[in-house]
Deep mutational scan, measured.
Amino acid sequence: VTTYKLVINGKTLKGETTTKAVDAETAEKAFKQYANDNGVDAVWTYDDATKTFTVTEMV
């Protein structure tokens, strides 16, 4: 189990959160659900070296 981080650069929601998951795909599903629940529709990137997902909402 690995800890993954999500950085949110949204128009109305900004911040960071983490989740523990067995792999990046599982973490991504959890983070996308979190973003969807909070109304963030954005572009996703992932950095495997830092285990960090970044979501940037387009203006």
Rank of each mutant, 00 (worst) to 15 (best):
T17A: 12
T3V: 12
K5Q: 04
F31W: 02
K32P: 01
Q33E: 09
M58R: 12
A35C: 15
G39E: 06
Q33M: 10
D47T: 03
T17M: 15
L6R: 00
F31P: 00
V40E: 05
K32F: 05
V55R: 03
M58Y: 12
F53W: 05
K51M: 05
E16A: 08
K5F: 14
A21D: 01
K11W: 09
K51N: 05
V1Q: 11
T56H: 08
D37C: 14
Y46V: 00
K11N: 09
Y46T: 00
I8M: 09
A27T: 00
E28N: 04
D47W: 02
V22D: 05
Y34G: 02
E16D: 05
T45I: 07
A21M: 02
K51D: 01
Y4L: 00
D23P: 00
T54K: 03
N38E: 07
A30M: 12
V22G: 06
T3D: 07
T3W: 07
T18L: 09
T54M: 06
F53V: 01
T50K: 06
Y34D: 01
E28Q: 09
M58S: 10
L13G: 10
V59T: 11
V7C: 07
I8K: 01
G39T: 07
T17N: 04
V22Y: 10
T54N: 04
D23E: 02
A21I: 02
G15S: 14
E25Y: 10
T18K: 05
Q33G: 05
W44L: 06
L6N: 01
V59G: 13
T54I: 06
A24R: 14
K20T: 13
V1N: 09
A21V: 03
D48P: 12
Y4D: 02
W44Y: 02
E25V: 10
T19A: 07
E25M: 10
F53M: 01
K51Y: 07
V43Q: 09
F53C: 00
T2F: 13
D47G: 00
V55P: 01
A42V: 08
Y34R: 03
I8T: 04
K29T: 06
T50Q: 04
A42W: 15
V1P: 07
D41Y: 11
T50N: 07
T2K: 11
W44A: 01
A30S: 07
N36W: 15
L13R: 10
D41M: 09
K29R: 12
V40N: 05
V7Y: 05
T26Q: 12
D48N: 06
Y34A: 04
T12D: 09
T56W: 11
K11T: 11
N36Y: 14
M58T: 12
V55Q: 03
K11D: 08
V40S: 05
N9M: 13
M58P: 10
E57P: 08
E25I: 11
D23T: 05
D23A: 02
Y4R: 02
G39L: 15
G39F: 15
T3L: 12
T12G: 12
D41R: 08
A49Q: 09
T56G: 05
T56V: 08
V55D: 01
D47K: 01
T50F: 03
T26I: 05
G10P: 02
A49F: 10
G10F: 15
V40C: 10
E16F: 14
L6K: 01
D47R: 01
A24D: 03
V43D: 06
A42L: 13
N36Q: 14
K11G: 13
D48S: 08
V59F: 11
T18G: 02
I8R: 01
Y34I: 09
Y46W: 01
D41L: 10
G10E: 04
T45Q: 09
T18P: 01
N36R: 14
T45S: 12
K14V: 10
Q33P: 01
T26N: 06
E57D: 10
K29A: 10
L6A: 02
A24Q: 11
F53K: 00
A42G: 15
G39S: 07
V55L: 11
T18D: 04
T52E: 02
Y4K: 02
Y46F: 05
Y34F: 12
T3G: 02
T18A: 05
A30Q: 11
K11L: 14
N9G: 04
F31L: 04
V7L: 06
V55G: 04
A24M: 14
T45H: 11
G10S: 13
V1I: 12
F53I: 03
T19N: 02
A24F: 14
T19S: 04
A35S: 05
K51W: 04
N36H: 14
E16T: 13
F53Y: 04
A27K: 00
D48G: 06
T26H: 10
T56F: 08
V40I: 15
T56P: 02
K14L: 09
T45R: 06
K29E: 06
K51I: 01
K14H: 10
D48W: 04
K29V: 07
D48C: 04
G15I: 15
T17W: 15
V59I: 12
Y4S: 02
K5M: 06
N38W: 15
K5T: 13
T26M: 10
F31Q: 00
D48K: 06
V40L: 14
A49S: 09
Y46M: 00
T56D: 07
E57G: 06
G15F: 15
N9T: 08
V59W: 13
N36E: 13
D41C: 11
D23W: 02
I8S: 03
E16S: 11
T52R: 01
T52I: 03
N9R: 09
G15A: 13
Y4E: 02
T17F: 15
F53D: 00
V55W: 06
L6H: 01
Y4C: 04
K51E: 01
F53R: 00
A27C: 03
V59S: 12
A30V: 14
V43N: 08
N36M: 14
E57S: 08
D23C: 04
D47Y: 02
T26S: 13
A27S: 01
V55E: 01
K51F: 07
V7T: 03
Y4F: 10
T26F: 04
V22C: 10
N9W: 13
Y34M: 09
T26A: 13
Q33F: 06
W44N: 00
T52F: 01
V7W: 03
V1H: 10
K29Y: 06
I8L: 08
D37N: 09
T50H: 04
K20H: 09
K11H: 12
I8Q: 02
G15D: 08
K32Y: 05
L6Q: 01
A49I: 09
V55F: 06
K32H: 07
T12I: 11
T54E: 04
V22N: 07
T3P: 02
K20I: 13
A35P: 02
A24P: 10
T2W: 10
D48Q: 07
T3A: 04
L6M: 09
N36G: 14
K5A: 03
E16H: 09
K32C: 06
N38G: 06
W44H: 00
E57A: 08
A30Y: 15
T56C: 07
V22R: 11
A27H: 00
Y34W: 15
T12E: 08
V43P: 04
T54W: 11
I8P: 00
T12V: 10
K29C: 05
L13N: 07
T54V: 06
T45F: 09
T52S: 03
E16P: 06
I8H: 03
K20M: 13
D37K: 11
A30L: 14
K11F: 10
Q33T: 08
Q33N: 06
G10K: 07
K20Q: 14
N36L: 15
T54Q: 04
D37P: 07
D23Q: 02
K32S: 03
E25D: 08
T45W: 07
Y46D: 00
A30F: 15
D41G: 07
V22K: 11
D47H: 04
K5P: 03
A24I: 10
G10Y: 14
K11R: 12
N9H: 11
D23V: 01
T3Q: 08
G15R: 13
T3M: 09
E57L: 12
D48T: 06
T50D: 03
N9D: 08
G10T: 15
T17L: 15
D48L: 04
D48E: 13
T45L: 07
F53L: 02
A49R: 09
F31T: 00
T54Y: 13
V1A: 08
A49W: 06
E28G: 06
Y46K: 00
F31S: 00
K14Q: 10
A27Q: 00
G15N: 08
V22H: 10
A24H: 09
